[in-house]
């Protein structure tokens, strides 16, 4: 039984169908990417998962049961439209958020203080929110999302506004949640982070599901299609000694670190390149077909889908 099941969900605003018969499931212990261009229906879908909006049709099940108000406390939500009570003290805002998520007793503030300490914001606890920088506020918001130790965590663009150091802190936090067996839904436009963090993804475009599976499966599936449809060249990464540029079927060679990044002529496969190299006695200690970036797949799918819709 999946921990979160989205089953044939539909949501329309007048004539606009924001979410059109979308289905997917997510399990505990995985980071699940929810992708899509702006206006694709991601936020509507997330709001339905959070029970802020109700679907017109379909089911949303949490642990096999229809999502209800009682499930509010099991979910931590960091929305894209972020905000805090600017005139209140940081610790009071976190206390309020925690209590609304079902935390009780006198130790809510103590837990909030401990979380602030862990995120390096301990000394800001009694300051008003408006005194904090945007990045600090973002971290407070993340603490508010996780303070009640939710089973399901929905993060909508969690890296927006964070510098590289704080982005790394958040990535480590997500990895930590995954290790704890939590279910994490990550919605972002930053494809490198999707590749780095997500186990599986679903992509929505114009309300419909257009991609669904593991990142590896999708990349494999679309590498061949991209070559076929857009003439995209294969790229291989090689660690070895020899004149790679002189080999047949090689378009260009670029040194990256101690390795060579070899771009092949269109139509030349990595296997053909490897056969040529070994046939000419080139020494190779490592060989890898460079994966198709998810970003290219994203753009390809959105463009193709848009052309089909037009």
């Amino acid at each position: 039984m999946p921990q979160l099941l989205i089953d044939d969900v539909v949501k329309a605003y007048d004539a606009t169908v924001a979410v059109d018969h979308v289905s997917f499931e997510v399990n505990g212990g995985e980071v699940f990417g929810l992708l899509g261009p702006n206006g694709a229906g991601k936020s509507t879908l997330i709001r339905m998962v959070m029970d802020i909006l109700r679907p017109d049709a379909g089911r949303i099940l949490v642990n096999g049961q229809p999502s209800t108000g009682a499930d509010h406390d099991k979910v931590g939500y960091l929305p894209e439209e972020r905000g805090l009570y600017r005139k209140q003290k940081v610790i009071d805002v976190l206390d309020y958020f925690g209590r609304l998520k079902g935390m009780k007793g006198p130790d809510v503030k103590a837990k909030a203080q401990a979380a602030l300490d862990r995120m390096g914001l301990g000394e800001w606890a009694k300051k008003k929110v408006e005194a904090l920088s945007k990045g600090m506020q973002q971290k407070v918001q993340i603490i508010g999302t996780l303070l009640h130790e939710p089973e399901i965590v929905v993060l909508d663009e969690p890296f927006t506004g964070l510098d590289p150091v704080n982005a790394r802190v958040v990535k480590e936090l997500i990895a930590d949640l995954k290790r704890q067996g939590r279910l994490i839904v990550l919605s972002t436009h930053q494809m490198d982070q999707v590749e780095e963090l997500c186990d599986r993804i679903v992509m929505i475009d114009r309300g419909k599901r257009v991609l669904y599976g593991t990142v590896r499966q999708i990349k494999r599936q679309y590498a061949e299609e991209l070559r076929r449809t857009s003439g995209r060249a294969n790229v291989v990464v090689v660690d070895g000694e020899g004149d790679f540029a002189g080999l047949p079927g090689v378009l260009s060679v670029e040194a990256v670190g101690g390795e060579s990044r070899v771009t092949l002529d269109p139509g030349v496969s990595p296997e053909t390149f490897l056969a040529h190299a070994l046939g000419r006695g080139v020494s190779i200690s490592r060989f890898e077909a460079a994966p198709t970036p998810l970003e290219e797949i994203f753009i390809h799918v959105v463009t193709t889908n848009g052309a089909a819709a037009a």
Partner: peptide, 13 residues
């Protein structure tokens, strides 16, 4: 105005 409503509505109806 503080754009905090989405967080609140995810916690209470």
């Amino acid at each position: 105005e503080n754009r905090v409503i989405e967080v609140i509505l995810s916690s209470i109806d």
